[in-house]
């Protein structure tokens, strides 16, 4: 991959991947951060990266793995305890979206990842299995449990809200 090809790929795939990672992490900054780090690693390891036939999937896998790593969690914790001034917020998402983000975050990483890969990135169960390194049966279990847990979370929230209809 030449430098021009990489830059073009980066410019076109970055927004899409950032959106997907946001669905996974629920955190804009974190999503951008891990996607960018994944691109840095892609260029660093471009020989391995090129052997892969699906570069976008490679980036996404690395980014998701980064998002769940303990390193990042610890660093985040450290940032949170420092007395730093509150940041500027992005314009708030509409309430339904916020509800979905909150419900998703309650799920275990593995279930959330399977749901995002299958329902958002449109990967087949087999593709999800290969991207996550888990057996197909496990992926199916994560999907069904994830959907059930999500439904419970959203229904529980609905009891509290009167105006919003969320399924």
């Amino acid at each position: 991959m030449t430098e021009e090809e990489f830059d073009a790929f980066y410019a076109s795939a970055f927004p899409r991947l950032t959106g997907q990672l946001y669905a996974f992490t629920g955190d804009h900054g974190e999503a951008q951060d891990v996607v960018q780090e994944a691109f840095v690693r892609a260029w660093d390891r471009r020989r391995d990266f090129l052997v892969d036939e699906a570069p976008e999937a490679w980036i996404r896998t690395v980014a998701m793995r980064l998002a769940v790593s303990r390193w990042r969690r610890a660093r985040r914790w450290l940032e949170l305890v420092r007395r730093t001034p509150p940041p500027q917020h992005t314009p708030g998402p509409d309430p339904e979206r916020a509800v979905l983000v909150a419900a998703l975050r309650k799920l275990p990483d593995a279930q959330r990842r399977a749901l995002v890969l299958h329902h958002l990135c449109d990967l087949s169960v087999e593709q999800v299995a290969s991207e996550t390194g888990a057996p197909v049966g496990t992926v199916k279990a994560r999907l069904s449990r994830g959907r059930a847990a999500l439904a419970r979370e959203l229904a529980a929230g609905e009891g509290e809200r009167e105006d919003h209809r969320v399924r």
């Binding site: 946001y22 629920g26 955190d27 804009h28 900054g29 974190e30 999503a31 951008q32 951060d33 985040r76 940032e79 949170l80 420092r82 730093t84 001034p85 509150p86 940041p87 500027q88 917020h89 992005t90 708030g92 998402p93 979206r97 916020a98 983000v101 909150a102 975050r105």
Partner: peptide, 12 residues
């Protein structure tokens, strides 16, 4: 360019 989304309260 890190800013926070919905769930996190603080941190810069």
């Amino acid at each position: 360019g890190e800013d926070l989304g919905v769930a996190d309260a603080r941190a810069d």
